[in-house]
Design a protein around this nucleic acid. Structure first.
Length: 463
RNA sequence: GGCGGCAUAGCCAAGUGGUAAGGCAGCGGUCUGCAAAACCGCUAUACUCCGGUUCAAAUCCGGAUGCCGCCUCCA
C-alpha cells in the first residue's frame, strides 16, 4: 500500500452507541488499531479519527424504551466502548468526535449541498439527490437502474429517487433536536462522517475504514455527499474488514448468538482475542469458535513461554538493545506492506520464536557475548512485531499468573491441594521413589494440573 | 432479480505465473528418573470440478458446483 509524504490520515466509522460492543466491533477496532500502529512503526505521523454516532433512530428508540435521555444512553455506551477497548489494549484514536458536537459543521455541509443543487427539501427534511451526482455507485459497483429499490422497505414518496437519502431529519415531538436553517431537527446518518472527516482530516484524505457492511449504502453516500460538496476526491484507499461468524453462523440478534467483548474477556486473555482476530486477513470472514480461541491462546502461551525462557537465559528483561532490527522484522513489514497481511505476519512471528528457541537449545554452558547479542537482536524483532499487533505487552510473570488465576476458577483447581501434592512429590523424588512421584503426577493430571520439573524446582500449570 | 466474495492437509490459515508459510492436532526422535517445555523429522504426487491460455497455473481466462455476504439498521 503506497504512502504519502510522512503522514497518514485515516477515518474509521465507529459505533452507534446504543448497545454494548460485540466481537464484530472488536475486529474492526483491532484491525484498524494494528494498521495505525504499523504506520507509526514505519515512522508515519498518523492522524486517526474514529467517530461515535451518538444521535440516531436506534438511540432514540432504545432510550424511549428504557425511559432515559438519549444523551445519557449514548454517553453510557461511549464509556463502555472505552472500557472494552482499553481492556483489549486498543490505542485511543487521535480524535474521537461525536456527531452531536459537530452540528454546525454538519449544517454547513448540508447548506453547501443545497446551494450546489445536490440536495432538496421536502417538508422539514433535506434529501441528497443521488441522480445529481454522476459517480453514484462507483465504490460498490452498483448502478442505480440495476438495484431493486424498495424490495424490502417501502420507499418514501417524497424522494425524487428511491436511493436518495436523508441529510437532515425534522424533529418529531419528544425527540432531541437542534436548530437549523430548515427548522429544528437532527442530522441523518451519513452526513456526520463527511462533516467530521473534513473537519479533522481535510476534504481529501488517505484511508477510510469500516466494516464490510458499510460499503453500501453508507460509504457510497459519504463519497457522493463529500465529493458533491467539496468538488474533490474523498479518499484514496478504502479498507473494509470482514465479519465475524459464530460457529459458522452469521452473528445476529435474531439468532441470539452475538458475543459481547466484556463477556469474552472474562474467559479469554485480551491478547488471545487479538491474536485470533488477526489470524486471518482483515477482509476474510473469520469464524469464532471456542476451539479457535483455545488455539489462539495456545499460541500466545507459546510466545510467552519463549519470553520467560529468554528472560531466564539473559538474566534480565531490561536490556538496552544496540543492534539493528533483524530479518524477522523485515519480513513482518513485508507482510504488512502487502495489504496488512497480519496472518502472514503472525507466521513470521512464530518462525522467529522457533529460531530463538533453537538458538537457546544449541547454546552450551559457555554463553558468550555474541550469543547474547544475537539473542537480543532477535528478541527485539519479536517485541517490535508484538508491539504492532498489540500483544506480548505483559511480563511473562504477570501473564502466567493471570492465566493461572483465570483457569483456577474455570477448572476448579485448589491451589493448596496442588501445592501439598507437589511438595509430597518433591519429597518422593528426593528419595528416588519414582513410583510414588509418578502416581502423584497422574493424580494431578486428572485434576487438570501439569507439572514441569525445572532446574530450580517444580512448576505447575493448569491445562 | 441485481452486485460482490470465498472454495488450499484432520482443523485454522498464508500464497496474486515457476512447483505448496505458519499455527493447532497427530506420529517418530533428541532431551528427561518419568514427564513438561523446546528443538529435529514426518504428515497436500487431484490446491472444489471441467475446459482454455502458457515452456510453466492453487495463482490468469471461460464454464460448472457449493457456501457466504450486500442490496434494510448493522463492525
Amino acid at each position: 500500500m503506497p504512502k504519502e509524504s510522512g503522514k497518514v490520515r485515516m477515518y474509521v466509522c465507529g459505533p452507534t452507541v446504543y448497545d454494548s460492543c460485540h466481537i464484530g466491533h472488536a475486529r474492526s477496532v483491532v484491525v484498524f488499531d494494528v494498521i495505525a500502529r504499523y504506520f507509526r512503526s514505519q515512522g508515519f505521523e498518523v492522524t486517526y479519527v474514529r467517530n461515535f454516532t451518538d444521535i440516531d433512530d436506534k438511540i432514540i428508540q432504545r432510550a424511549a424504551m428504557l425511559g432515559v435521555d438519549p444523551k445519557d444512553l449514548a454517553e453510557k455506551y461511549i464509556r463502555e466502548f472505552h472500557q472494552d477497548m482499553d481492556a483489549l489494549k486498543v490505542d485511543r484514536a487521535t480524535v474521537e468526535p461525536k456527531a452531536t458536537d459537530h452540528i454546525p459543521q454538519i449544517i454547513r455541509v448540508i447548506r453547501l449541498l443545497m446551494e450546489k443543487g445536490y440536495a432538496y427539501a421536502a417538508d422539514g427534511d433535506i434529501f441528497f439527490s443521488v441522480t445529481a451526482f454522476s459517480g453514484y455507485g462507483k465504490l460498490s459497483g452498483r448502478k442505480l437502474e440495476d438495484m431493486e429499490a424498495g424490495a424490502r422497505v417501502d420507499v418514501d414518496a417524497r424522494k425524487h429517487d428511491p436511493f436518495d437519502f436523508v441529510l437532515w431529519k425534522s424533529a418529531k415531538p419528544g425527540e432531541p433536536f437542534w436548530e437549523s436553517p430548515w427548522g429544528t431537527g437532527r442530522p441523518g446518518w451519513h452526513i456526520e462522517c463527511t462533516a467530521m472527516s473534513s473537519e479533522y482530516l481535510g476534504q481529501t484524505f488517505d484511508i477510510h475504514g469500516g466494516g464490510k457492511d458499510l460499503v453500501f449504502p453508507h460509504h457510497e453516500n459519504e463519497i457522493a455527499q463529500s465529493e458533491a460538496a467539496f468538488g474533490q476526491p474523498f479518499v484514496n484507499y478504502w479498507v473494509h474488514n470482514g465479519f465475524v461468524n459464530i460457529n459458522q453462523e452469521k452473528m445476529s440478534k435474531s439468532l441470539g448468538n452475538f458475543l459481547l467483548i466484556r463477556d469474552l474477556l472474562k474467559e479469554y486473555h485480551p491478547e488471545a482475542l487479538r491474536l485470533f482476530l488477526l489470524s486471518s486477513h482483515y477482509r476474510s470472514p473469520i469464524d469464532f469458535t471456542p476451539q479457535h480461541m483455545e488455539e489462539a491462546g495456545a499460541g500466545l502461551d507459546k510466545l510467552y513461554t519463549l519470553l520467560e525462557r529468554t528472560q531466564t537465559v539473559l538474566g534480565t528483561d531490561d536490556f538496552e538493545i544496540k543492534t539493528e532490527s533483524g530479518d524477522h522484522w523485515a519480513r513482518f513489514c513485508e507482510a504488512m506492506d502487502n495489504d496488512f497481511n497480519t496472518a502472514l505476519g503472525i507466521g513470521v512471528l512464530f518462525e522467529a520464536a522457533r529460531q530463538i528457541n533453537r538458538l537457546m537449545d544449541e547454546a552450551t554452558a559457555a554463553v558468550g557475548n555474541d550469543f547474547q547479542q544475537q539473542l537480543m537482536r532477535q528478541l527485539r524483532d519479536i517485541r517490535k512485531i508484538g508491539a504492532v499487533l498489540g500483544i506480548l505487552t505483559e511480563s511473562p510473570k504477570d501473564y502466567f499468573e493471570g492465566r493461572q488465576a483465570r483457569l483456577q476458577e474455570k477448572k476448579q483447581v485448589d491451589v493448596a491441594t496442588v501445592d501439598a501434592l507437589v511438595a509430597e512429590r518433591t519429597e518422593a523424588r528426593k528419595s528416588k521413589d519414582w513410583a510414588r512421584a509418578d502416581a502423584i503426577r497422574r493424580k494431578l493430571e486428572a485434576m487438570n494440573v501439569l507439572l514441569e520439573d525445572r532446574p530450580e524446582g517444580t512448576a505447575w500449570k493448569i491445562r
